[in-house]
Design a protein around this nucleic acid. Structure first.
Lengths: 143, 143
DNA sequence: TTTATCGTAACAATGTCAGTTACGATATGG
DNA sequence: CCATATCGTAACTGACATTGTTACGATAAA
C-alpha cells in the first residue's frame, strides 16, 4: 500500500466487519484480508473507535465490532475520524509580507477550505453499506 | 510549505501573473512572492505550461505569461495539469486473494475514483478569476 | 494458568517533496 | 559580438510522513 491507505484500509476493514456482525474480528484477520499488518490495523481502527464508529474488546476471543449499522456510517464519518485533510491544510499566515500577498494567501487558503468542504459533503452521501453494495450478495466469505 | 503545496503554489502564481499581464513574470519574482524557490516555481509552472495554461520565454526579459484569460482557467485544469490525485490512486490488484477480497478491493477503488471525479467536477466550477476575486481591486502590487 | 487479543511505544525502511546548487541553453540589450 | 538575464534540468540533501515490524505490557476468556 502507499497513498491514502488509511482511508482505503478503513473502508476495507469496515466493509469486512459488516459480513460477520456476530463475531468480533481480530486485527490479525483484518490485516490478512487487507494485506497489511495487525498493528497498522489497530492504529487505524483505533481512530475509528475514538470516533464511536466501532468498539474493541481485549483478551481471548476479543476483537473489533461495528458500533452502528453500516447504513448509518458515512464516508464523511470515517474521513473525520481519521483526521484526514486531503485538500486544505492549516498554514500559518506569514506576517512579514505586503498586504496584497497576505490577501492572496488568505484567498487561496479559503478556496482550499471550500473545496475540502465540498469533498466532505460528497462523502456524506455514501455509506459503508453503499461500499459493500455490489459485493454483499457474493457467496461465503470463509477462507 | 508542506502539503498540497504544488496546487497552492500554482494558484498563487497564476493569480499573481494575472495582475501584470503586460510583462512576463520571472520565476525569481514569483518565488519571492510565494515564499519559495525559483527552481520549485519552474518545476510547477513547467507542468502548467505542458498543459497549455501558460507560456514561458527564455533569455533576457523572459519569464512566464498566461496563455488564456483567468476566467478560462479552471481549478480542474490546474489540478489535471499537475497530475494530482488527492483521493484515488492506481493500485495494482492483488491476484492471489479470494474472489470476495478482489471484489471488495475493486469496490473500494471504484468508490475512491467516484469521489475523485466529484472533486474534479467541483474544481471545474472555480476559475483563477474567482480565486483572484476579492483581492483584485486592492491597490498597487508594487514592492 | 495459559492463551489470545488489544494498546502502545520504539524503531527501521521507504517514499515524497521542497529546497538548493550547478550548469547548460537561449534570447535580449547594448 | 559580448555580457547579462532567464529558463530547463539534473543531482543531491534534508525534512517529514507513512507503513511495516518487533516487543512487551494489560486484559480477559478458556
Amino acid at each position: 500500500m502507499k497513498r491514502n491507505s488509511r482511508l482505503s484500509l478503513a473502508l476495507h476493514a469496515l466493509s469486512h466487519m459488516a459480513y460477520d456482525t456476530g463475531d468480533a474480528q481480530t486485527s490479525a484477520d483484518i490485516a490478512d484480508h487487507a494485506g497489511t499488518n495487525p498493528v497498522v490495523v489497530r492504529r487505524v481502527l483505533g481512530k475509528l473507535r475514538a470516533a464511536g464508529l466501532l468498539t474493541s474488546e481485549r483478551g481471548h476471543s476479543g476483537g473489533w465490532r461495528l458500533a452502528r449499522e453500516t447504513k448509518h456510517i458515512t464516508l464523511a464519518d470515517v474521513y473525520a475520524a481519521l483526521g484526514e485533510r486531503l485538500v486544505a491544510s492549516e498554514q500559518p499566515m506569514e506576517t512579514d509580507t505586503c498586504a496584497v500577498e497576505r490577501a492572496l494567501d488568505a484567498r487561496v487558503q479559503q478556496i482550499m477550505r471550500e473545496i475540502e468542504e465540498s469533498l466532505v459533503e460528497r462523502l456524506e452521501h455514501t455509506t459503508i453499506a453503499d461500499v459493500q453494495g455490489a459485493t454483499r450478495q457474493l457467496p461465503s466469505h470463509a477462507h
